[in-house]
Design a binder for these strands. Structure first.
Length: 289
DNA sequence: CACTTGACCTGTCCGC
DNA sequence: TGCGGACAGGTCAAGT
């Protein structure tokens, strides 16, 4: 679930909450959630302060004063929730989606010198936090292969068309989800962008015109920026760094709206199908196969 | 090589 | 009510 807008929202929240704090302790119970050795922890994590929070694609980067970086992928159900040291009530805001922490899906807990904590919760255990030398981050396989950021101003419409054409034999939805074509788009914003551009997700890229693909980039940029403005999409698991939900789902036109009417066609119902192995939402009138 | 499917996991929901 | 199976969906490995 966390796609570009959700990770960007967490990034902005953590920027306000944890930059400058000094890491005093780390606990982790699931090896795949935090695979580094105790030696790495002792040498490069404990005692380091947080200098900057960055994002690349759906990956969050927490830079440390030790010249190491915590590289974090939330995958489907990951959450990063900060809790301060205030002692009122249960110690968390009333509108938080998350209760007392740690809880049974807490995989990693970072404790800061001032007693505040950052919890990495991940129900399905697909996500991870890995400590890398900052200088090595661009050499991680994923970082070398991932495509341009959607809002990079050097990404022209023509560039986008060319990158999509590299996957001309597959469906336009599979190409949009391919992180080496363009970074940060997942199932929600693929469906929303394709509806915006009136392109059926099952069409082969080779059968989609340049004009349609250029419109698709505009529509993808529109839904991503709207979602960032709304704090992302909370369907089930996603919360921001304060444990609060995002509201893009209230503005979604097709995602999770099967059986409801298309915003362009009050008499037509949104349908759900499977494309590229994922639940896919379309208006059968706007989007023709 | 290009593309598709399965695995990684847990929790929820649906039908029998 | 219990139980098996489908589904949720990001990414990589394995299969066609």
């Amino acid at each position: 679930m966390p796609e570009l807008p959700e990770v960007e929202t967490v990034k902005r929240g953590l920027g306000l909450l944890i930059v400058g704090r000094v890491i005093a302790g780390v606990e982790h119970d699931w090896p795949k959630s935090f695979p580094n050795s105790q030696t790495d922890v002792d040498e490069f994590l404990l005692g380091a302060s947080i200098t900057e929070i960055r994002r690349r694609a759906k990956v969050l980067l927490i830079d440390l004063s030790s010249s190491y970086t915590l590289v974090i992928h939330l995958k489907m159900t990951g959450q990063l929730v900060y809790r301060g040291t205030e002692v009122f009530g249960a110690g968390h805001p009333n509108d938080s989606l998350v209760g007392d922490l740690p809880d049974r899906s807490t995989r990693v807990t970072l404790t800061f010198q001032d007693g505040s904590r950052l919890f990495f919760n991940d129900q399905r255990k697909f996500g991870w936090i890995k400590l890398y030398p900052t200088i090595e981050v661009p050499n991680i396989d994923f970082m070398k292969r991932v495509g341009p950021e959607p809002f990079e101003d050097t990404l022209s419409h023509t560039d986008f068309v060319q990158r999509m054409r590299r996957r001309s034999g597959t469906t336009v939805k599979a190409a949009l989800l391919d992180q080496t074509v363009i970074a940060g788009i997942g199932n929600i914003y693929a469906d929303e962008g394709l509806w915006g551009a009136r392109i059926h997700p099952v069409r082969r890229v080779r059968d989609v015109s340049d004009k349609e693909l250029k419109l698709l980039l505009d529509e993808v940029r529109y839904v991503l920026s709207l979602s960032i403005e709304k704090g992302g999409s909370t369907d089930k698991n996603y919360v921001n760094a304060e444990g609060k939900r995002g509201s893009y789902i209230d503005f979604a036109r097709v995602f999770r709206r099967e059986g409801q009417s298309c915003p362009r066609h009050p008499d037509v119902m949104i349908e759900k199908l499977r494309v590229a192995g994922r639940g896919t939402h379309v208006c059968p009138v706007c989007q023709v196969e």
